[in-house]
Design a protein around this nucleic acid. Structure first.
Lengths: 132, 132
DNA sequence: GTTCGTGCAAACGGTTTGCAACAAT
DNA sequence: ATTGTTGCAAACCGTTTGCACGAAC
C-alpha cells in the first residue's frame, strides 16, 4: 500500500481522519465501488462517518485527480483509483467492473464529429461470466 | 419516416395511442433523449401522457429490441433508436451525444477477462466543441 | 475568531411501483 | 370476465445541499 497520507498532502488535501479512511480504501481497491459501497466499507472502521463526508471526499479526490469517476453502470457512478488510461469490462449480470489494460486492445483510426475534439476515449465491453 | 405502427405490431407491441406517440418520436430521432426529454416533447401533442407511461413504453421498446438504452451520461439513461453497432461521442460540457459510425474506428485485439465473455463493446469518446 | 470539515436531515432528480379507473379482447 | 394499459401519487435510490456544531489554524 502506498503512502496515502503523502499523496493527499501532495495534492493539497487536508488529511482529516475521515478523508484518510476513505482514501485508504478507495485508492487501494480495484473493485470500482460506488459511493454507497465505500461508505458501507469504511464505516466499519469509522462508525461515525457520514454519507455526506464520503461524497465530499470522493468528489474532492476526483477533482484533485487521484480518482476517476466512471459512468459505465446504470444507476450509480463508480470510482476508479486506476487513473491512467485503460478500458473497462462490465459484467451485465452482476454489474461488476474490471479493468482492461490499455494495450489489450488497440483503437485504430482518429475520428471525431465535425467541430468537436476528442479528449479521451475508452473501449467499454459488456458481457457475462463464461458458461464454463 | 418508417411505418412505426407496422414496426410495433411486428414486435408484438399493442399499438396504443400513447405508445404510438412515444415511438414515433423516439424511434425517429438521433438526439439520444432521456426519458424526461421524451416526455416533454411528446406531451406537446398528447397532453394527458403520463411520465409512467413514457417509462413503461421506453422500457418495452428496449425489451423488444427497437430501442437501446445507453449508459454514457451521468445522471440519466439515454435512448438510442440506432440499434445496430456503433460508437458514441459525448460532449462533456453539454452532455450531448453523437453516434460514431462503426467503421470510423477499428478495435483491434480480442480481449476478455479470464472466465468472462464479451458480448458487446463500443468505443466511448469524450470531448468538447473545438475551440476557435 | 475565522475558516474549514463533519454529520444530520431535508431536498432533489431520475426511475419504479401500487393502485384504481378504464379499454380492449 | 379477464387481461392489459393508463395516469396519478407515493415510494425509492443515488446524490447534493443547508445548516449548526466542532476542529484546526
Amino acid at each position: 500500500m502506498v503512502d496515502i497520507l503523502r499523496r493527499l498532502r501532495q495534492s493539497g488535501i487536508q488529511p482529516t481522519a475521515q478523508r484518510l479512511a476513505v482514501a485508504r480504501f478507495v485508492l487501494d481497491t480495484t473493485s470500482h465501488p460506488t459511493a454507497e459501497e465505500v461508505w458501507q466499507r469504511v464505516r466499519r472502521g469509522s462508525p461515525t462517518l457520514s454519507r455526506a463526508t464520503v461524497y465530499n471526499t470522493l468528489n474532492l479526490l476526483v477533482e484533485k485527480g487521484l480518482l476517476k469517476a466512471q459512468v459505465v453502470r446504470e444507476g450509480a457512478v463508480v470510482f476508479d483509483a486506476h487513473v491512467a488510461r485503460h478500458h473497462h469490462f462490465v459484467d451485465e449480470e452482476t454489474g461488476e467492473i474490471q479493468d482492461v489494460p490499455w494495450d489489450a486492445v488497440k483503437v485504430v483510426g482518429e475520428w471525431s464529429p465535425r467541430g468537436y475534439e476528442v479528449q479521451d476515449y475508452q473501449v467499454v465491453m459488456r458481457g457475462r461470466r463464461r458458461a464454463r
